[in-house]
């Protein structure tokens, strides 16, 4: 399963590092990463490969939520198919 992780919030030092670290702990591989400022918000989008993921999706999402709270940003993980179905014919 491939997923899309989006991190949205105020920019600060170490967001990418902390998120990447957590993903490595969960054995989630980052395939692509892009970062931009949209309006006043820092927006990071990652495409990840979750084939070798060592925890359940529920557990990983709970950990991402917790990290998001610590960093003061919103972190979402969604299966890529929702974006594919909406934006590709």
């Amino acid at each position: 399963m491939r997923g899309i992780i989006t991190v949205i919030g105020m920019d600060k030092i170490g967001i990418i590092a902390r998120v990447s670290n957590l993903l490595a702990e969960c054995k989630i591989n980052i395939l692509d990463i892009s970062q931009t400022i949209m309006g006043e918000y820092f927006t990071m989008i990652m495409m990840v490969d979750m084939e070798k993921m060592e925890f359940s999706l529920e557990e990983v999402k709970a950990r991402l939520d917790k990290l998001g709270e610590e960093l003061g940003v919103s972190i979402k993980l969604q299966h890529e198919d929702i974006f594919r179905s909406m934006h590709r014919i």
Partner: peptide
């Protein structure tokens, strides 16, 4: 890869 605007549109 999807472009960031597409992804943000869905999330929005």
């Amino acid at each position: 890869m999807f472009n960031p605007y597409e992804i943000m549109e869905t999330i929005h």
